[in-house]
């Protein structure tokens, strides 16, 4: 895991530094759930598959994280780990397929996330790493 939480007056901001775009998206998912709960305690019992398509990488990230918030709100599902993450390009679209494991149970909820935001959102792809910045409205 390679993410770090930064100071943000009203909400929660984190930056991910990972080896690839896929790893960066996986870490962004883990960072998101670290805001919500103690992810160490969540069991990997229930698998969730997520499929998102978008024209831009930034909106792909937004929509992916938003799917996670949706799972929390509707099923109380929390992430344990990212089992698979694939991001491919099909013409002018990016396609994300992820397999996640987690659980819907009686875990302590530290904070609920209202929404992913575009504020300060950044995806910087270098030769050897990818840096993502995300702010969640909580």
């Amino acid at each position: 895991m390679s993410y770090e939480f930064l100071d943000h007056t009203a909400d929660v901001k984190f930056v991910v530094d990972a080896a690839s775009l896929e790893d960066a998206f996986s870490d962004a998912a883990l960072a998101t759930f670290e805001i919500i709960t103690d992810i160490e305690k969540v069991e990997g019992k229930v698998e969730k598959k997520i499929h998102v398509e978008s024209e831009r990488k930034r909106t792909l990230l937004y929509d992916f994280l938003n799917e996670l918030v949706y799972l929390v709100d509707t099923e109380g599902w929390l992430l344990h780990n990212v089992e698979k993450m694939s991001i491919t390009r099909d013409g002018d679209r990016f396609i994300l397929d992820a397999a996640l494991v987690g659980d819907s149970g009686d875990y302590e909820i530290l904070t609920q996330i209202k929404s992913v935001t575009y504020s300060d959102m950044e995806i910087k792809e270098g030769d050897n790493n990818t840096i993502l910045t995300v702010v969640h409205d909580i």
Partner: peptide, 28 residues
């Protein structure tokens, strides 16, 4: 969550419809 998702949905709709507006804005 209902309101949060409604805001999010329409931000995305506006972004998809007005890429030229969003490019010029100081904040998306």
């Amino acid at each position: 969550g209902l309101g949060h998702q409604t805001c999010s949905d329409y931000l995305r709709k506006m972004e998809d419809k007005y890429p030229e507006i969003i490019e010029l804005l100081p904040e998306k």
